[in-house]
Amino acid sequence: MSALEIQHRDPGTLARAGVLRTPHGEIRTPAFVPLATKATVKSLLPHEVAELGYDMVLGNTFHLFLDPGHERIRRFRGLHEFMGWRAPIITDSGGFQVFSMGHGTVADEVKGRAPMGQERMGKILAIEEDGVAFRSYLNGETLFMGPETSMEIQGALGSDIALVFDECTPFNVTREYTQRSTERTHRWLDRCLAWHDARGPEGQLVYGISQGGVHEDLRVESTQAVASRPVDGIAIGGSLGADKPQMYEVVSWATAAIADDPRPRHLLGIGEVDDLIRGVELGIDTFDCAMPTRLGRHGVAVVNDPERRWRVDLTAGRFKDSDEPLLEGCPCPACALGYTRGYLRYLVHARELTGQRLLTLHNLAYLSRLMQRLRAAIAEGTLAATAAALRAGELP
């Protein structure tokens, strides 16, 4: 039985709305998931994130493994108690972070060592069938992560949803390597499921991850292979293409391959406004991305301006004397309390933490309202018109 109860479907697309049930509560879908990378949504308190309308956050297995360590978090009775967020948590597998450090001898295949000069802090040392050896970016210590390690860490964290360990191939590897890597990811999936069946926390959901890069046959085969396993959900990861049209095509291959599957679908690392709209149309139930919080920390606000990627960069000097609000009618603290773009620009320029907090609150509030609009439109049968209005920059 699927953890996702699909309550509404859009007749013109693969979009669907419902409720995803987990041990720590329900997630209204489709939903955006803010990142709590190191056991916190940066600059915000848990109740502030909840009050913005979010049901779930994402913790980062790799970073929490390095510091403070999963055993320490276990002694605090898990990640929920450790960080004071007692609603659902999804944890990634750590695979993306491990492989984003650099593949070293990826072209030389599994048993190679990193080339001279690359054996330094924060680098992969070897990719083997058992897993990946790498140097910690904190202190250069040699560490190992494989399927069982990843699942053990996520078990100690006690997340509601755990993602299996996978290899995230970079965009520039060959089709042959992508195929071999994808097949290895499927073997790692089986090992993750075996570990979880024997030792995993009761009630924790496990998502498999579709790979295959930008090759249609490999992506479809991988998605079907993941769906053939007893996973609780299916995530779409890896290289999604060089631009937005290619990304939408890759995602469409995956969701079309499991169009009738009732299990939840998660799109990894995607959170731009237009990508969320299109992703919902393609049948994605949940998304995660660092975009809104990272932009806020760097002085950028999400606004109704599709011609500028829905962004306004307050670091620009032209906002020094601006008495405009960030977004008229926005209920976030930055807008509701009447702060001007000029004042927020000053805070950003002065590197005041208040500015980072206000912009982070605003950006997350914007995406929360966006997802609310999409959920309501699916339920009301108005998704086509609503999506067109949102793409035109009409979000009250």
Score class of each variant (00 low, 15 high):
residue 9 R to A: 06
residue 10 D to F: 01
residue 15 A to P: 05
residue 15 A to Q: 09
residue 31 A to D: 04
residue 37 T to C: 07
residue 49 V to I: 12
residue 49 V to Q: 05
residue 50 A to G: 04
residue 56 M to N: 05
residue 56 M to V: 14
residue 57 V to Y: 05
residue 59 G to P: 04
residue 64 L to R: 01
residue 65 F to S: 12
residue 74 R to D: 13
residue 75 R to A: 13
residue 77 R to W: 09
residue 80 H to E: 05
residue 81 E to L: 14
residue 85 W to K: 14
residue 87 A to L: 14
residue 89 I to A: 09
residue 92 D to C: 15
residue 96 F to R: 00
residue 97 Q to I: 03
residue 99 F to T: 00
residue 100 S to T: 00
residue 121 M to F: 14
residue 122 G to C: 11
residue 122 G to V: 10
residue 127 I to F: 11
residue 134 F to R: 06
residue 137 Y to M: 05
residue 139 N to K: 13
residue 140 G to D: 09
residue 140 G to H: 10
residue 143 L to N: 02
residue 145 M to C: 02
residue 145 M to K: 03
residue 145 M to V: 07
residue 146 G to T: 03
residue 146 G to I: 00
residue 153 I to L: 10
residue 154 Q to P: 12
residue 155 G to T: 11
residue 157 L to R: 10
residue 157 L to D: 00
residue 158 G to V: 02
residue 161 I to A: 07
residue 166 D to A: 10
residue 166 D to W: 07
residue 173 V to M: 09
residue 177 Y to C: 02
residue 183 E to R: 11
residue 183 E to M: 06
residue 187 R to W: 04
residue 194 A to F: 09
residue 195 W to G: 00
residue 197 D to S: 10
residue 198 A to G: 01
residue 201 P to R: 15
residue 208 G to C: 12
residue 210 S to C: 15
residue 232 D to V: 07
residue 236 I to W: 02
residue 239 S to R: 07
residue 241 G to T: 06
residue 242 A to K: 15
residue 254 A to S: 15
residue 259 A to E: 12
residue 263 R to T: 02
residue 265 R to M: 01
residue 266 H to M: 08
residue 268 L to Y: 03
residue 269 G to V: 04
residue 272 E to F: 07
residue 280 V to A: 14
residue 281 E to C: 12
residue 281 E to W: 11
residue 285 D to I: 00
residue 289 C to R: 01
residue 291 M to I: 13
residue 294 R to L: 04
residue 295 L to F: 11
residue 306 P to A: 03
residue 308 R to I: 00
residue 315 T to K: 13
residue 315 T to N: 14
residue 316 A to W: 06
residue 334 A to H: 07
residue 340 T to C: 07
residue 342 G to I: 01
residue 350 A to D: 12
residue 351 R to E: 15
residue 352 E to A: 08
residue 352 E to D: 15
residue 359 L to F: 06
residue 372 Q to Y: 02
residue 383 L to E: 10
residue 385 A to E: 11
residue 391 R to Y: 07
